[in-house]
């Protein structure tokens, strides 16, 4: 009897493990897989481990996955300062990179948008006062054919985080300027 129970538990676990691999979030998965996994397996699997799907960031090694950098300043200041974790090395630096990457990635995830930037900004109030600007830059990697040409860092995300009356933290995301067609007024046309 105990072996029958253990067999059932093993089969359930191995099924969950398989779903974890084929339904990892980084690559996307079929709706059926994600629903079955989310409803039946995630509630008991997630508390015991992270369920990252063994589909890790480094296994992609994409040129677009370059290093990120956090910069902050009191709102209104001209000069940006390096954010916390800038001088970190080794595994510590990798954890800071994951945090910045999660900040960017969560902006396109429903329900998570703005959560991390607001929290990180609020965490910087002790450094910069209760009205801060923060930006995340990407440091592009040189191409193998022209390694001496290192592109300039590019800003990926900018926001202002401040404490408003009542103690609430407000996030004001700065949208990148986009090229738009000029508005040409037409005589007699609708304004």
């Amino acid at each position: 009897m105990p072996r029958a129970v253990a067999t059932v538990l093993l089969v359930v676990y191995l099924t969950g493990l398989t779903l974890t691999v084929i339904g990892n979030t980084s690559s996307g998965s079929a709706l059926l897989v994600s629903v079955v996994k989310g409803r039946l397996f995630s509630p008991w699997m997630t508390p015991a481990w992270l369920d990252l799907g063994f589909d890790y960031f480094f296994t992609y090694a994409q040129p677009t996955d370059a290093a990120l950098r956090l910069e902050v300043r009191p709102h209104g200041d001209a000069a940006w300062q390096s954010g916390p974790g800038t001088g970190a090395t080794g595994p510590r630096a990798v954890r800071w990179q994951r945090l910045l990457r999660a900040m960017l990635a969560s902006e396109s995830e429903p329900g998570r948008e703005g959560l991390l930037p607001a929290a990180v900004g609020a965490g910087l109030f002790d450094w910069c006062g209760e009205d801060v600007d923060l930006q995340v830059l990407v440091v592009p990697q040189p191409d193998r054919q022209a390694p001496e040409v290192v592109p300039d860092p590019a800003v990926l995300y900018t926001a202002r985080v401040r404490r408003v009356s009542g103690g609430e933290v407000q996030l004001i995301k700065t949208e990148a300027r986009r090229e738009v067609a000029p508005v040409v007024p037409t005589a007699g046309g609708a304004q």
Partner: peptide
Amino acid sequence: AAVLAQLKGDVWWNGTAMWWLTTREPG
């Protein structure tokens, strides 16, 4: 699972993944 993930990326097919991993400085 690592193989499955890697085989989805061009850089693991064209053999340049190590370049992009090495030129990323953090860690």
